[in-house]
Simulated assay, not measured.
Amino acid sequence: MTLGLDPGSTTTLVLLRHGETALTPGKRLSGSGGSDPALSETGSRQAEATAARLAADGTVRAVASSPLRRCRETAAAAANRLGLPVEIDDDLREADFGVWEGLTFAEVRARYPEEMAAWLRSPAAVPGETGEPFEAVTRRVESARDRLLTRYSGSTVLVVSHVAPLRTLIRLALGAPPESLFRMELSAASLSTVVYPSAGDASVRFLNDTSHLR
Rank of each mutant, 00 (worst) to 15 (best):
E132H: 04
D57L: 14
A38V: 08
S35I: 14
A118E: 13
A124Y: 13
D96Q: 10
N208F: 03
T2S: 12
W119K: 02
D91P: 03
L191H: 01
G43Y: 03
R214K: 02
D57V: 15
A125W: 08
S192T: 09
E20H: 11
D89T: 05
T42F: 00
F105P: 00
W100C: 02
S155H: 10
T21D: 06
G4Y: 09
L174V: 01
E135L: 13
L158A: 06
S35P: 12
M184P: 04
P123Y: 13
R69V: 10
F182D: 03
P177R: 00
L3H: 13
R109C: 06
A55H: 14
R70M: 06
T150H: 09
G33N: 00
R81E: 14
T104Y: 01
V60G: 07
C71N: 11
L68H: 12
R72T: 12
L68E: 15
E132S: 04
G102M: 09
I88V: 15
E48A: 12
A188K: 01
P178M: 07
E94I: 02
S143Y: 07
P133A: 06
S66P: 08
S155N: 06
A55L: 15
D36V: 12
P7V: 03
D90K: 07
A56C: 11
A79T: 05
P165E: 06
V204F: 00
L174W: 08
D90Y: 04
L149M: 07
T193H: 05
D6M: 09
N208M: 03
T104M: 00
A49C: 08
E107F: 02
L92Y: 09
A136P: 03
S65Y: 12
S190T: 07
L84T: 10
A110C: 05
V126M: 03
G26K: 03
S32F: 02
S180K: 01
L181V: 12
V195P: 04
L5A: 13
L15C: 13
G102E: 10
P177G: 00
I170D: 02
D146K: 00
R109Q: 10
G175T: 10
L120E: 14
S9H: 11
M116R: 10
L148E: 08
R139F: 01
T150P: 02
K27N: 11
I170T: 02
M1L: 14
G200R: 10
V86G: 01
T24K: 10
D96W: 04
E115G: 11
L39Q: 09
R139W: 04
R139V: 05
S161M: 05
G34Q: 04
A77V: 12
A64H: 11
P133N: 08
D57Q: 15
R70H: 14
L29W: 03
S190I: 07
L120H: 07
T104D: 00
R140K: 09
Y112G: 06
G31L: 01
V160C: 00
A202G: 02
T59A: 14
G33Q: 03
A164V: 14
T138P: 06
A38K: 02
G131V: 07
S30C: 15
R140W: 06
R93P: 00
L149A: 05
D96P: 04
L186F: 11
Y152S: 05
S203F: 09
V194F: 05
A110D: 14
S44R: 14
E73T: 11
W119T: 01
A117R: 15
G19N: 02
W119N: 01
E135G: 11
S187Y: 09
